[in-house]
């Protein structure tokens, strides 16, 4: 109000406009944060010779997810299906998203495709991958002359 261009008038003709603007900003502030996010959100954990990828996949079971590995790229693909439910329901709120998803993750090193472990834990998928034996850093001994 202090920034009003009409201080002498005693009222601000644009107060309503500004209120609307801030209301609009508030309404859309949360929009981009959720709308543009890739699904599923992932975290990557790095160990000495292994890497763990975790993904938040609520409502998804192991049968719904396909994991594939190509060189050092791990791909998570699958489908989120709404649970079959009884007919004649009236929806009050539908905020959960459904449909197919696919995400490729570049790993920090090449991994052994035979030593991949994946498990679901309360809607969080955890994939543990071991670094390829041939790819591991080798210690080089220095011989004394």
């Amino acid at each position: 109000m202090a920034l009003s261009e009409f201080p002498r008038l005693g009222f601000d003709p644009f107060v309503e406009l500004r209120r609307m603007q801030s209301e609009m900003n508030r309404l859309f502030s949360g929009f981009s944060a959720t709308g543009t996010r890739d699904f599923p959100p992932i975290n990557i954990w790095l160990g000495e010779n292994s890497v763990v990828v975790t993904a938040e996949l609520p409502g998804v079971t192991g049968d719904d997810v396909n994991l594939s590995l190509e060189e050092d790229v791990l791909t998570l693909a699958g489908k989120r299906e709404p649970k079959a439910q009884e007919q004649n329901v009236s929806w009050q709120r539908r905020e959960r998203a459904y449909g197919s998803f696919s995400r490729a993750v570049q790993l920090p090193f090449r991994v052994d495709p035979d030593k991949v472990q994946a498990r679901f834990n309360n809607g969080v998928l955890e994939i543990e991958l071991q670094r390829l034996e041939a790819d591991r850093p080798k210690k080089i001994e220095i011989r004394a002359a």
Binding site: E56, G59, V89, Q92, R93, R96, N121, N122, G123
Partner: peptide
């Protein structure tokens, strides 16, 4: 958490996504 809510003849069903919660 995002929620789905629907109403049937005799009950209200609420589904919320809470990954990582036991």
């Amino acid at each position: 958490p995002p929620a789905d809510i629907y109403e049937t003849k005799d009950s209200i069903v609420v589904l919320t996504e809470m990954p990582g919660v036991s």
